[in-house]
Design a protein around this nucleic acid. Structure first.
Lengths: 200, 200
DNA sequence: TCAGGTGCTGAACAACTGTTTAACACCGGG
DNA sequence: CCCGGTGTTAAACAGTTGTTCAGCACCTGA
């Protein structure tokens, strides 16, 4: 009987610090920058401590995703009650760090098989949640789901907002304003506040 | 005067084989799977030969992108003459390997600074090309660019088709058919042939 | 007081990485 | 015939990686 390896507790402060560090590293430098030693150094702890909280590097990635996904579902279930639902959906994908992190997870899924299913399952769960909100939204406004498919609208808004934000981070903004205007015109709803953040 | 390092010729068969190998590896296992030794093994040559054709690993990535981007521009300039332009644009992003490769390039750009500008510049070049084609297309059909912005339409089609294909590769297809139907209805143009490939 | 759990560490392991160097085999032209 | 160039290689270098292990320091409850 091999004695089971000793491990840190679920709600440790350090554990969360490590997950924060992984998220930051993935956003700033991509998933390839995440390694046991690098994460340890950035968090100011010894490398072995990382493996004390997460048995393997794969476990570290998985834990990062799971925490993130749970937070996302949590945030959505409350946000989707909004009476400006279209804007809420649009904004959800419009946080650069969030969009980049998502991209990294998908790229990760491409070569870590353990990650794949997790990403897909979460995406589907989120989409279902959003679809239901859109359904309620359209029904309240007396729009027949035969006229405008709630599901189609969900996919449209989420894919486009995510794509635009990703292009933004690359420095490519060509046509973004035009497309947003087109969508707003069709939905007859503004998608942002039109407020330009002041400098300084 | 340090004698300049010896290097392979531009049009070598082996050089192209190496680039093919990199593309395949990136699609199948992600950019993190690409390394000097791995590429060499897959191509059936010695590791040092890779560095004979590409001074560094970064050069290898850059060369892979550049060849790919050139091919893409080449293919688009002819394809965009099509009289079923919307379908052409839609199809362009609908090749799974192409979409995945593109994703990997963007993820790469996130942590290899040498790659960043190259990706952005290419994306903008491609978008300009497509926009001009859409402009011609709409003009021919007597649609005023004030009524429907060619640029907006370009961004709409390319971002959505790319997103959908990426989700497909994850196994997430929820809402795809509905969204495609919605777009086809608004454009009054079918976006695929409706042909279901036969089994066996 | 001491037993046991929890947080944390340094050192070591074997395997792997990008890169350089020297040298091999082969070719066509002078 | 041999000279220079081209394709290709094995071996080595120095550094990195994921992972394990034994053991330290501290706290809490008995």
């Amino acid at each position: 009987m091999t004695a089971p390896r000793r491990m840190g507790t679920e709600n440790s402060k350090t554990r969360h610090l490590l997950l924060d560090t992984v998220e930051r590293l993935m956003v700033e430098e991509g998933y390839a920058a995440v390694g046991v030693r690098r994460v340890a150094r950035e968090a100011g702890v010894a490398p072995a401590l990382v493996l004390y909280y997460f048995r393997t590097l794969d476990d570290l990635f998985l834990a990062t995703m799971r925490r993130r996904f749970e937070q996302e579902i949590q945030a959505q279930t409350t946000a989707l009650e909004s009476d400006r639902l279209m804007k809420t959906l649009w904004d959800h994908n419009s946080h650069p760090e969030g969009a980049v992190l998502n991209l990294e997870f998908i790229a990760l899924a491409n070569h870590r098989k353990t990650v794949r299913g997790e990403v897909a399952a979460h995406a589907e769960r989120l989409r279902t949640l959003q679809k239901e909100a859109v359904e309620r939204y359209l029904t309240e406004r007396g729009i027949d789901s035969g006229t405008l498919s709630p599901l189609a609208l969900t996919v449209l808004i989420s894919t486009i907002s995510r794509s635009l934000i990703l292009e933004d981070t690359l420095g490519l903004t060509m046509g973004h304003a035009e497309l947003q205007a087109l969508i707003e015109r069709h939905l007859q709803t503004p998608l942002d506040d039109g407020a330009v953040p002041e400098e300084g």
